[in-house]
Design a binder for these strands. Structure first.
Lengths: 138, 138
DNA sequence: TCTTGAACCTCTAGTCACTGGAGGATGTAG
DNA sequence: CTACATCCTCCAGTGACTAGAGGTTCAAGA
């Protein structure tokens, strides 16, 4: 039941070059090869790649995923470390949301422009003059 | 009143290498040089760099900033194009907020884990099994 | 005038997570 | 055997910076 890289790609919904990249950076181990040097993967590779893809979709960085994979292969360890990695990531996501929300508010305040000439354009005025922003700090 | 690159950097709150980078990609024009080939900047350069920094802080991409700068230097043109660029950017920001908010919700649902062993860890379980996510699509 | 240290210069490559293309080999179906 | 899809490695690009090497300039102080 050995899979080609294309088959693994389709099963795990991860592109072929990305799979090669993950192997290069050590997230995936080097698979067995055919005589013609083609990669062949097994069910554990599918599972691991699914884990990686899922964690990437949740925005975890590659290094964090590396740690999570290590932890996942040590079932007797306390999961406090997993929790810490996830909480740190959650905090980062919340921080990004707050920043983007403030940014959205700024942009919305700017677009009240009613299509006059640029010499009278509020958007350009605001960009040219930081003092017109409602927030002192971006 | 010619400024060194360090002075410009401090006035506009943009790092020296970043100023050089902006010159390289054409956002800033090449300034006059001293006999010793050091850059010297004037008030218009300060204004332009402030505009750039402000737009970057608002998340506009470099190419969009290039367009905004072009438009800003044509005061008689209609500001519809400025509006379009800003609205497109605003939509992108809203989209990112929505994505991050969904992601935050997923992560929050995952961290109910109460520090047992990894073999029973909900975070690891969810990462290993996509079906446990509350959303079918990330 | 000389010395010293800060700031300047160009060049090159790295960051992060991929992505794309060139040039060639393999595998399978017809 | 042929044709085509898929495989391979290698190299470089993406976007917006960032860092460091090795050398030059400038200005203040002695």
């Amino acid at each position: 039941m050995a899979l080609t890289i294309g088959e693994l790609s389709r099963q795990a919904q991860v592109k072929v070059p990305t799979i090669r990249y993950y192997e290069q950076i050590g997230l995936l181990s080097e698979p067995v090869r055919t005589e013609g040097q083609q990669r062949r993967y097994g069910p554990e590779d599918v599972r691991r790649l699914n884990f990686i893809r899922h964690a990437r979709e949740l925005g975890f960085e590659v290094d964090a995923i590396r740690q999570l994979l290590d932890l996942a292969s040590a079932p007797d360890r306390a999961c406090g470390e997993v929790h810490d990695i996830t909480i740190a990531h959650l905090d980062e996501v919340k921080s990004k949301i707050a920043r983007l929300t403030a940014l959205r508010d700024e942009l919305e305040a700017m677009v009240g422009c009613d299509h006059r000439r640029i010499s009278e354009c509020r958007i350009i005025e605001v960009l040219a003059d930081h003092g017109q922003c409602r927030h002192a700090e971006h």
